[in-house]
Amino acid sequence: MSLVTKSAKPIGHKRSLSDEMFITMLVASVAVGIFLLASVLVPNFFQWQNLINLVTNNWAVISLGIGVTFLLVSGNFDLSVGGIVALSGVLSVWFVQSTGGVNALSTGLGMPYWLGVICALGGALAIGGLNALFVVRFRIPSIIVTLGTMMVARGIAQVITQGSQRNTNLPDEFGFLGNLTMFGTSIRFPVVLMAFMLIVAVIIERKMVFGRITYWIGANPIAATLSGIDKAKHVTYLYLFSSGIAGVVGILLSSEFKSGYSNRGMLMEFDALVIALLGGVAIAGGFGSVVGMFFGAIILAVVTSATTGLTLSPDWQFILKAVAVFLAIMTQTWALARRNR
């Protein structure tokens, strides 16, 4: 009986490319194309060092993009990462500043550096925990929750720095991590850490159960629950990871500049969102990849630096970014629709 519809050909399991790979390749080729275009238009753009700079100058946003991408794939937003960058940076400075400075802004808690960093990271995770609490337990839309915690985090930073910055009374080792160069090159520790996190993220996304669960939740949260997935736990982890990454970024940035500044990381949450969307991550969840996000960041970086190279006024940057975002997302939608016709 079973012979009726069975063809001689066995069921294939290799499709040339999955939709995700297709979009990632598309984004990567757009990134390369736009780089070549900029190289033609902008003098001295086509240089090895410039290419490296495109990545190294954007280590912070790309790092944040990892957490944001995972959350978007699970169907949730995280707009709080920029605020957390400011908060954890300011906290790390405040905790480590020695006691008894000349004024309030130069007086801290006098913790050893390692303890200050751990506590600052704790502050970042607390914001992530707050995100998870409201999104998971009280079922408030994540865009609202993280918009709120974005302001809470930056607000706390603002109070601690009294709207200014803290940069005095810091031990010398405070500036170590953010400025450490590695492998005898000019590549700094934060960039190496970003690369490491990217690799780990790709492994989690492609090879691990954790990554797969993220896609299931984003693709259909009801079906995921009815298939025995603990959605609450998983989304909580995702928010904690994202805020943890943002905390590390904040700590490294304040180490780099040896200051805690409440406006640091301003608009970074939107840049992280934009590179994820540019990289083909679906805002509705269930689709996207960290590699795509990385190339999205490259597109944005090329556009930004090419504007400067074209001696256009920096005032034009936002408009060019906007054009790039619209074009990229329209191309993706069109290409995917065409492919799946």
Partner: peptide, 16 residues
Amino acid sequence: TQGLFTNLTIRENIPV
């Protein structure tokens, strides 16, 4: 709405 992950493949649906 409750059973299938429609934007995922057959392979990705089965092990959940």
